[in-house]
Design a protein around this nucleic acid. Structure first.
Length: 409
DNA sequence: TCTGGGGTCCTAGGACCC
DNA sequence: TCTGGGGTCCTAGGACCC
């Protein structure tokens, strides 16, 4: 009994901004509220018209008729976000814009404005950090928060604190979010979907059977289309059905690690901590061409794009203060098949010319008869500049000795 | 009118070393 | 001479997530 009083219940929150990109756009263009709006695609001349129109009058005064429509778009690109009104037409994210245009040609198409989304992302995260300092960044519109030791974090299972954070974010930005609070990240992530939008869901261990087991396996973060298809084939559709299987049986079908993990997940078991800081493992840039390119026939164009990608990665590394020693390329052929090649250097670099040279060597190891639709450049095995400084003092002299010995032989 | 961009983690085989 | 394992690093591909 005394342990119960002294040890607070572990309460982890998952917070997810509601239709984030679309909501940010609606702050700017409130006249579009309730209309089918789609965000995505590459830049087009119409986007500049829209920006020019903004220059002349406040965005909220731009007449709806002046916005670009899906039917005016031509080219590659997918939907990043669609408003609920657009989803009514069967439009969903990751759908090709051309396909979406057939479903709802009159939908308004806005260009992606990452600078704006990043600004609001920073803003809502700063607000959370002021209230609850143990926050894990999970991308532009999601975070986990450890409520366990935060004052008020235990009240009503976390509902009071969740409400406070929701209100603080809304008051400062006008954006709404959904929060799930549960004993761990796995359950919190599921719970944040329960009452979307602008909702809160509180889950305790005892709620597993009633609230989690009826859900589709796909709702487990980590079970994607492939694993789900395999589960379906085995006659397993819900998390409850998954939980009925023995761990050994799951390990036989999905491998030791995945099987054990699935078993735990189905039983609501997850001991992953909330991670406050993490170092990047790799940085990359890639681009899909406006039309498929051929290595020989479009050599100059391809070469220029390749060099630009290397320069961008080098810039990203430098701006963020990293060096890396694994240089890689990725390409996608016109039939959508992709492949990667990489090589590891003896020393770390962030130099565009060094990256370009070794990415070029990777490219030589790849068949180039077929047209390409995408090219990418990646630098991995990253290290911070500070770490690299120390590494050079220890490792580099050892390598020099090695080289000297090799030379003697 | 198909199918973006930027990531992480896992697996698996081969090289190489002890 | 034959027969082992482990451990680590490198490379390629693939699943998954936002």
């Amino acid at each position: 009994m005394s342990t119960r009083l002294n040890t607070p219940l572990r309460r982890i929150a998952h917070l997810d901004m509601d239709a984030f990109y679309a909501s940010v756009e609606l702050l700017r263009y409130p006249q579009l509220k309730g209309l089918p709006v789609v965000i995505g695609g590459g830049r087009r001349p119409q986007d500049e018209d829209l920006e020019a129109a903004q220059g002349e009058r406040p965005p909220h005064r731009i007449p709806i008729a002046d916005f670009p429509r899906l039917q005016d778009y031509s080219g590659r690109g997918v939907i990043t976000t669609a408003t609920y009104a657009a989803r009514q037409f069967g439009i969903g994210s990751a759908m090709g814009l051309m396909k979406a245009a057939k479903l709802c040609p009159q939908a308004i198409l806005l260009p992606v404005d990452f600078a704006a989304y990043r600004h609001y992302s920073r803003a809502f995260k700063d607000i959370i950090l002021e209230i609850a300092p143990l926050m894990e960044d999970r991308g532009i519109d999601e975070v986990y928060i450890d409520f366990t030791e935060v004052p008020g974090g235990q009240r009503e299972g976390g509902r009071v604190l969740a409400r406070l954070i929701q209100k603080a974010i809304f008051d400062a930005t006008g954006l709404t979010c959904s929060v799930g609070v549960a004993p761990n990240k796995l359950l919190a992530k599921m719970a944040s979907e329960f009452n979307k939008p602008n909702g809160i869901a509180i889950v305790f261990e005892d709620d597993l059977e009633s609230k989690v087991w009826p859900l589709a396996c796909r709702k487990i973060n980590g079970i994607g289309p492939k694993a789900d298809a395999k589960l379906q084939q085995l006659g397993i559709h819900t998390i409850g059905e998954l939980a009925q299987k023995e761990q050994g049986w799951l390990m036989d079908h999905f491998g030791q690690k995945t099987g054990a993990w699935m078993f735990d997940a189905a039983h609501g078991v997850d001991s992953r901590p909330v991670v406050l800081e993490s170092e990047p493992v790799s940085m990359s840039r890639e681009t899909t061409f406006e039309r498929d390119l051929h290595a020989a026939r479009d050599k100059a164009e391809l070469g220029a794009i390749f060099t630009r990608l290397c320069e961008q990665v080098a810039q990203d590394l430098e701006r963020k203060g990293y060096v890396g020693k694994t240089i890689g390329i990725k390409l996608r052929y016109d039939d959508f098949k992709s492949l990667t090649r990489d090589l590891t250097l003896p020393d770390y670099t962030a130099d565009a010319a060094v990256i370009r040279h070794h990415a070029g060597l990777c490219l030589k190891r790849v068949p180039l008869q077929q047209r390409l639709r995408l090219l990418g450049v990646r630098v991995g095995s990253l290290m911070t500049l500070a770490e690299h400084h120390i590494w050079r003092q220890n490792e580099a002299p050892a390598q020099q000795v090695q080289t000297a010995m090799d030379l003697q032989i």
